[in-house]
């Protein structure tokens, strides 16, 4: 295991709405590793992800490996415009991220061939989630922040997404996930578990 971390969190505390969400949290994220954040509902898992991505103000330290300036984020809200079609959505984000390759492969991967001209508003929940992950692929970010990536999906979709995460890890990326589903899918040596109480 290389000593070079992607993300190092030291004594992270966060206060939101006049209450302390979590106190003095520390963990490291190494390349090819995944960190699972455990905790009950309302314990501040989403807050932690937002702190790491420097949106919320926090006390403590969050060190990010030099050269990484953006995060891939998949949250509860998918971040899709209802009026965009799947095609225009992919085209839009492809241009934002300067993704050189064609996104045809992504469409194939997610089985979205039939829905290419369908507006996002008429897609199902799982398909929207897939689009959210499609954006993640085009982003080419080393660190992925996944907020409950698997909740509410069927078995097949779960498998696709787990495979995707695995692939991302094998390419030297790291992920921060707030789910406790399917931990066994990943190599035990590469999983870190962090508990928030």
């Amino acid at each position: 295991m290389s000593k070079e971390y992607l993300l190092k969190v030291k004594n992270l505390s966060c206060e939101r709405n006049y209450k302390i969400i979590f106190n003095k949290l520390s963990f490291n994220l190494y390349p090819r590793n995944i960190v699972f954040i455990d905790g009950n509902n309302g314990s501040g898992k989403t807050t932690l992800l937002l702190c790491v991505s420097n949106i919320l103000t926090y006390s403590g330290e969050v060190l990010i490996k030099k050269g990484i300036d953006n995060f891939g984020y998949v949250g509860h809200r998918n971040g899709l415009y209802d009026t965009q079609t799947v095609d225009s959505f992919l085209y839009f984000w492809k241009n934002i991220f300067n993704y050189k390759k064609s996104y045809q492969a992504i469409i194939e991967y997610f089985n979205l061939n039939k829905f290419i001209d369908v507006p996002v508003s008429s897609l199902s929940f799982g398909q929207k989630k897939k689009l959210s992950f499609a954006r993640l692929i085009m982003m080419k970010s080393k660190i992925w922040l996944l907020d409950e990536p698997l909740s509410g999906l069927d078995k097949k979709t779960k498998k696709i997404i787990l495979k995707l995460i695995q692939e991302h890890l094998s390419l030297g990326g790291g992920a921060l996930a707030t789910s406790h589903e399917r931990i066994s899918y990943f190599d035990k040596n590469k999983v870190t578990r962090v508990k928030i109480d």
């Binding site: 984020y73 949250g75 509860h76 998918n78 971040g79 899709l80 922040l145």
Partner: peptide, 9 residues
């Protein structure tokens, strides 16, 4: 719909 958050991140 959370796009603003995506832009920010």
């Amino acid at each position: 719909n959370g796009v603003l958050l995506q832009y920010r991140i």
